[in-house]
Amino acid sequence: MNLDKLKHQESGNFFLMAGPCAIEGEEIALRIAERIVSITDKLQIPYIFKGSFKKANRSRIDSFTGIGDEKALRILEKVGKEFDVPTVTDIHESTDAEMAAAYVDVLQIPAFLCRQTDLLVAAARTGKFVNVKKGQFLSAGSMKFAVDKIKESGNENVILTDRGNTFGYQDLIVDFRGIPEMREFNVPVVMDCTHSLQQPNQSSGVTGGKPALIETIAKAAIAVGTDGLFIETHPDPKNAKSDGANMLHLDLLEDLMTKLVKVRKAII
């Protein structure tokens, strides 16, 4: 992938990072990828398959964390090769960086870890693209320092992703002023349309969400000039092993993308 291509698509479209929250198994990962690839090819949307090989940030100790690191990473590798698409997964510790980089194209830094210098440097040193989620506790302008850490470690391939801000208790809100502000750092900026609708740390210990507002967040993000969108999607969100409460049903993705392409064309 070329950074300039992410910012200035020949099709004029945004790019899409999408897939399940977590890698649950090979069959379902391939099924989700095949469906999304058919949609993005049809609409000329550059696509990056997303799947977490491990879920480290869980509310409860009995929450699903993964099917095994190497097993999940090999599935990500297979998706990338079979559909000829780049892949992204999140890492949580410095030691994850080199391991995950052997299988995927983009390393993602979770929002809660976006200030962890050792983690950012380790990701940067792999030479892979590094997608940094903006901390829920940070202003858009503060993300300049995350960008600087990666670039000063010798890697220019940085992406920033907004995923909402903490707003009171157990809720998030999106400040769309942050998208143009972070684009001033001369890196592609992505809007996470699903995690920004989370309702964290509910009384049950399971995160809630407002998936009915995914289209609203996505339309607004495109309208203010985001370079890409991040959407977690699943054919059966109610039974997804992680973050099902705020995921988009896979059957709704094509209609949403069709609308968003029209919004994009209207503003360029």
Rank of each mutant, 00 (worst) to 15 (best):
V104N: 07
I150S: 00
V37K: 06
G135Y: 01
S94K: 12
K7A: 06
L107H: 02
L113M: 06
H234L: 04
M1N: 15
D84T: 13
G141K: 05
V37W: 05
I32H: 05
V104A: 09
E82I: 14
C21N: 03
T95Y: 15
V79F: 01
V263L: 05
K42R: 10
S153N: 12
E27C: 10
G168K: 08
S63R: 10
V121H: 02
T258V: 13
K144P: 00
G135M: 01
D243N: 06
A72C: 04
A123P: 07
A124K: 04
T89L: 04
L119E: 02
A97L: 03
L73N: 08
V206P: 00
F145Y: 11
V206N: 05
R58W: 12
E156V: 03
Y169R: 08
E77K: 14
D69M: 08
A220R: 02
K144T: 00
A140E: 02
G154K: 09
F230T: 00
T126Y: 02
G225A: 14
L43M: 10
T226C: 11
R177W: 15
F176N: 15
S52P: 06
E232M: 10
D227F: 12
S196L: 04
E27F: 10
K151Q: 05
I267N: 10
F53C: 00
F112H: 09
K259N: 11
D192L: 11
I61D: 11
G68M: 01
H249D: 11
T117M: 02
D84V: 14
I45T: 05
M182G: 06
C21V: 03
D69W: 06
R58N: 10
A97K: 03
V104P: 13
Y47C: 08
Q136T: 09
I91V: 08
